[in-house]
């Protein structure tokens, strides 16, 4: 299991665009990838699940990957976060 914590920097929070980018980035991986915010956890492969959390700009989130390709998944999340200025 791999974890990484981010602060969301995208001005609209984890809303439509950043959310769909993260989701489409991790969906190809076999590992379970989740996002935890304010002690609630959602599947990072589900747009509705992530958007439903209402994650705002400046929020602290924790991304967790668990499975055979967990390190690759986290690396991909990290890449998207930075490239698309979603979080850091």
């Amino acid at each position: 299991m791999e974890k990484k914590t981010y602060t969301i920097t995208s001005s609209e929070g984890l809303h439509a665009r950043p959310c769909s980018m993260l989701v489409s980035a991790v969906t190809p991986f076999k590992s379970e990838v989740t996002i935890t915010y304010k002690e609630r956890t959602a599947n990072l492969k589900s747009i509705m699940g992530v958007m439903g959390m209402g994650i705002e700009s400046g929020a602290q989130v924790e991304i967790t990957a668990d499975g055979a390709d967990e390190s690759e998944a986290i690396a991909k999340v990290d890449d998207i976060m930075k490239k698309e200025s979603i979080g850091e």
């Binding site: 809303h15 747009i47 509705m48 958007m51 439903g52 959390m53 705002e56």
Partner: peptide, 22 residues
């Protein structure tokens, strides 16, 4: 209703059969 956003401009629904509609 599966997700409402703090800004109320979008609403996420899930049908009884599991289809998500945003």
């Amino acid at each position: 209703v599966v997700s409402v956003f703090p800004t109320n401009h979008a609403i996420g629904l899930e049908t009884d059969t599991g289809v998500e509609v945003l």
